[in-house]
Design a binder for these strands. Structure first.
Lengths: 153, 153
DNA sequence: ACCTATTGCTCAGCACACTGACTATTTCTG
DNA sequence: CAGAAATAGTCAGTGTGCTGAGCAATAGGT
């Protein structure tokens, strides 16, 4: 009767896409390190010494979630966490040698996984796919701060 | 040095898409009922009397997760759970009047939200978007049971 | 200097989402 | 019909992901 077709609901499709990705990640990349954890390692390879909040911003995780992820990576000995002597609120984050090695290893596997994941699409379709995903996500993100982006004060 | 560009990683993009969706859902649809919960309500409007496992299959959730979601909906009084007299393992699920009302109300709001969410894309792009999402998810799902889909036994 | 606002982080609480181990029931097979 | 395999749910454990409350440190304004 009043039921709806979920196959045209972007939220439902987004969830399915993530599940599919999770499945492939577990089998092809790592069962220990998760995809968000890898994103954090990657951010710290690009910019060593970042603080927690900024890492969260780079990878798109809020303060609570990033704290969890970082504490797990710390427990595994993949990164070090030091109080910033200049600003006692911040923790400065830096990968250990083990962390760098892990990132390097996973980078290779991740690339392989992405190939398999995107294999059903042609090169042009992949480009379109990225473009569409970006535009939708960016637009929704822009709706977050309603009054702000008016330029004039 | 060895850092990678996450903007071409489908897993990362899938996560961002879900976050964007979550944000919009909370502001435009409901803060109480989540998107997976709505999917369950919707499945039971389409096919009343389904058992837990089948509902999970319809909406794409494993047995543990669907159990959680259903128990929450039960606590809110949106559905009833009765042992199948024919098969003592199953629970048969059916929406309450309140559940049907809630589904109807959220259906309207969800449609509005989807419009806003997809507004950055033209009608043709939306069709392409759905097609690409489906193809990638289906392909990954197909890799789940490696030996099975060979037709002959 | 002092008071206030901001900022970085933690913590509690809620809700998915998965795996693996277990229980109860049914079904299949000899 | 008895024993084995399959099936539906539960439970424990782990890992995102969010909000809101609170705390300590810094920065800004007077």
């Amino acid at each position: 009767m009043g039921a709806v077709d979920l196959t045209t609901h972007p939220g439902h499709l987004a969830r399915r896409l993530q599940q599919a990705h999770h499945l492939l990640w577990n089998t092809m990349v790592s069962e220990e390190i998760t995809s968000p954890q890898f994103a954090v390692l990657n951010a710290l390879v690009a910019e060593p010494g970042l603080d927690q909040r900024t890492v969260g911003e780079r990878v798109g995780l809020d303060r609570s979630t990033i704290a969890e992820v970082i504490s797990r990576l710390g427990r595994r000995g993949l990164l070090d966490k030091v109080r910033d002597p200049q600003d006692g609120r911040r923790f400065l984050l830096r990968l250990t040698d083990e962390g760098v090695r892990t990132h390097r290893k996973l980078t290779v596997r991740t690339a392989r996984m992405n190939q398999v994941f995107l294999a059903p699409l042609s090169a042009e379709e992949q480009a379109v796919f990225f473009d569409l995903l970006h535009r939708v996500s960016d637009a929704a993100e822009g709706l977050r701060n309603p009054g702000e982006p008016l330029g004039a004060v």
